[in-house]
Design a binder for these strands. Sequence first.
RNA 1: GGCGACGUGGCCGAGUGGUUAGGCAGAGGCCUGCAAAGCCUUGUACAGCGGUUCGAACCCGCUCGUCGCCUCCA
Length: 483
Amino acid sequence: MSLTIYNSLSRKKEAFKPITEGEVKMYVCGPTVYDHAHVGHAKLYTSMDVIVRYLRHKGYRVTYVQNITDVGHILDTGEDRILKGARRDRIEPMQVVETYMRSYLDDMDALKNVRPDIMPRAAAHVPEQIEATQKLIELGHAYEANGSVYFDVKSWENYGRLSGRKIEDQESGGRIETRTEKRNPEDFALWKAAPPEHILQWGSPWGRGYPGWHIECTAMATKYLGETFDIHGGGLENMFPHNECEMAQSEAMTGKNYSNYWVLAGSLTIDGVKMSKSLGNSLRIADALKKYPAEVIRLFILSAHYRGPIDISDDAIAAAQKGWERLLGPYNQAQQMRSAGAAESDDSNIDAIIAETTANFTKEMDDDFNAPKAIAHLFDFVHKVNTILNGDAPVAASTLEKIIALYDELVEGVLGLVPSAAGNADENAADRQDGLIKLLIELRAAARINKDYATSDKIRDQLKELGVSLEDGKGDTKYRIAS
RNA sequence: GGCGACGUGGCCGAGUGGUUAGGCAGAGGCCUGCAAAGCCUUGUACAGCGGUUCGAACCCGCUCGUCGCCUCCA
């Protein structure tokens, strides 16, 4: 099986060939930590998470680097975002960074996104950024002006290659601020001179100042992954100017390709419109998680291709939740049948079903990580397994184990869609709960035999109110805990 | 104005030349004490107009529309 990836740089699907056989070096632009993360972040980082999980599933040794931007991302007012957050919250800049970085990590953990291997922080890599800036000056791709340093876009003919923009096109728009100290309006800052009152500042060969936004990714990616690495991930909306500038300065600095593959994810809208601070319609991840389990949000995100846009609405998520419950049905059922003891003989064709599902899943994921199509094959699997589990024939323990193994490997291992037992409660509590529910099921069964339907329905209705649904199958009754 | 993505059945959303996407919702049936879950059956969609082709949702052109970026946001 060979993996194909759509490369935003070539605008084509390409066979994936890592620099070193069996290894993948991957960098993803991380958040600027000056506010809580919203569901747009969830879309991007969950998409990247599944890519990393799948690469590892295929056996690649992945080094996953995602930065934390804690300095240098400047608002158009010239104000640093971190400082803006500090003023708003009336706390120190580094408190802003710590607060929102922890909040971001909490959100990502709750969404079950695996932690990157390295999460370098921009403010901790100022010397590296100064060094990169210096090198660009030496090579004639950057110049100093009044204590600031700018990248000279006209010195690098490949500028615009990633986003497909030409410098001339931008000039006609006339919307770029013309700074007299810049040689070209499109030149971007590698280093900014800081006025004395600016809280975040460092010493440099050009005086006190702070790094520009784009240079951090160049400095940190090349430090931890090398001058050329395999995959650069991020959001499509950051292709220009950020990724464009990042690539230009990196390749100008090293004379080598920066990232071999650019994997950029589509944006998220909410009720048809873009989420933005100014519209006040942003939905925090933490708030979304109060309404829906992490797995439902993941399935919702993964039900559209990562490169495409996605619109979040209550209806769409509710549909995802129903789909998720169906997806998990056989898993829950198999777990209960396993604990109840199972038949020995096995005349099901489970091996063929598993093999077919795995092959189809892999084929789709190999085709530019087509999770929605891979999930469609999982629903086919659900259908076939439901027929086995709910049929008249006894189901062998080995069959149950194979079903559960497929869920563990693909549904959870690659997609992260299986909830941990009993909502992370400790095992004793989960066992106790399981025993209590089964006791009630037994009492209800006895009542039903006696045609005491008042009692049996009372048990079922009250359990339902507690979030436990009873489902009568052939011979036995299973339960399902609402999420 | 420039760059880019896109417009699929009631809804969400795959699919890039000829063969079932899938999910949600809906309808009929089986099962059930009744439900639920599950199973069976059921949906002649591809923005519009031209063109290429034996054949197009898929290729080309034009038109209309939506969204993103160019300016703070992943």
